[in-house]
Write a protein that binds this DNA or RNA. Structure first.
Lengths: 233, 233
DNA sequence: GCGCGCCTATGACTTTTGTCACAGAGAACG
DNA sequence: CGTTCTCTGTGACAAAAGTCATAGGCGCGC
């Protein structure tokens, strides 16, 4: 038990909103944090449910999304180890604004609402850190709105691929190779569209020579040309 | 001077994030707040500019929006008296994520970044209140994403009209009358589309008998029927 | 290695959205 | 009163998004 508590503490210390806390303060949280295991695809919380507390990702990834009556989903963010999730509803007392589900096998630490609020009152800097994190989240949402409102599926897909490529980018290498994360369905729900359009647009980019596909491996032969595709449209 | 400072204090006291502060604390802010007047349509701040502080709306309305290279705009929110604006970039140190402009003749109070941060450190509850406000903002953004991603322009327009009508609603009256705010262009940028589609969809709703228009005055003859339009689609 | 389930690709089609051009209503102003 | 400006309404298109149905690939387990 003492050992796992030490583990939790290590996990918590890596989280942006808890950085800078003393060991004693981390222990306060670690003692109260409840670890929870999730299978791939398992729901962590559902949109509209009352919020009991926040989660910290220890292992795996969690996908935050909205779902429509027609069965479509729109991903709002995917958070990995070291991220915290659902800080917001903890504070405004409302329900979860969106659903959360494990992408893969994931371990999360649950921190109760009251414990967290107590911590914030005792340590004003924590609240400021939460605000920073929430600010980043807000920016991301604004970015999604911008993309949905102004750009085409093709553009969003290209921009998504570019981000993937830039992560992998080995300096100024000619051809960047990377692999497509998840299924086309999952890509679609991140881009705010449907499976078929992802498939079609991938084909189209390939036909135009901007992209080469082999299964789930993708290569962008000419990064410059690819980027140029994003500017005008 | 002392008089206008008392005015500022009155204004600040009405703002959600400053509620509960003592008179002395409000004075601290009121002394440092800088009043600024804006003409209709005038820019308050532009997307990407470094953020110097937040604004409190004393009179008038401010529109927060994104604009695209192609000249389209997407409104994120419209805030009236008693609202605060741009709290977020104050905390994460980044630039303004969107632009702000006065809708009508408006008076805003500017509160510098440092003054505000100092206040938050001295009064942890303030930070918690900011988090509540930001939480509401975040929910609204998620709502916009949901609508853009899942629904048609027609649906968004109908839902917008319904909200207007419900405000005006005199109990369970048969026909609700209200007036369309702003031009079709402005409506369009709130709904994430273009002028023509607003015009066309208004015509269509009218042709279907769900709506009656006379200039900018609108009447929904049968609220039930109108609402029913939103459920299935 | 065969079948099954899940995923992809794609053609054909509909609906929705957006663009362009232009005509006309209505207010604002000299 | 006529001019000018802005806003609306609409027809005619063009482009993008989404739907439906179907064929085929790939991996996994029995």
């Amino acid at each position: 038990m003492a050992e796992s508590r030490a583990d939790y503490r290590r996990t918590l210390a890596k989280v942006a909103i808890f950085s800078g806390l003393t060991d004693a303060e981390l222990d306060f949280l670690a003692e109260r944090a409840v670890p929870r295991q999730f299978a791939p695809g398992e729901m962590v919380f559902g949109e509209g449910e009352p919020c009991a507390g926040l989660y910290v990702v220890e292992r795996g990834n969690i996908r935050i999304f909205k779902s429509s009556a027609a069965g479509r989903e729109q991903v709002l963010s995917i958070d990995g180890p070291g991220s915290s999730v659902a800080e917001v509803p903890v504070f405004d007392g409302g329900n979860y604004p969106a659903s959360g589900a494990a992408v893969d096998r994931a371990t999360l630490l649950f921190v109760g609402k009251q414990d967290f609020q107590a911590l914030c009152l005792a340590h004003p800097e924590v609240a400021l850190k939460v605000l920073r994190v929430v600010g980043a989240r807000l920016r991301r949402l604004v970015g999604i709105i911008e993309e949905l409102s102004f750009t085409t599926v093709r553009h969003r897909l290209a921009s998504f691929l570019l981000h993937l490529a830039q992560r992998e980018a080995t300096a100024a290498a000619a051809g960047v190779e990377f692999s497509l994360p998840g299924t086309n369905q999952e890509l679609a729900s991140q881009l705010g569209t449907v499976r078929e359009l992802v498939s079609r647009n991938l084909s189209r980019l390939q036909a135009e020579g901007l992209l080469k596909l082999e299964g789930r491996r993708a290569v962008i032969p000419d990064l410059k040309a690819f980027e140029a595709e994003l500017d005008p449209a």
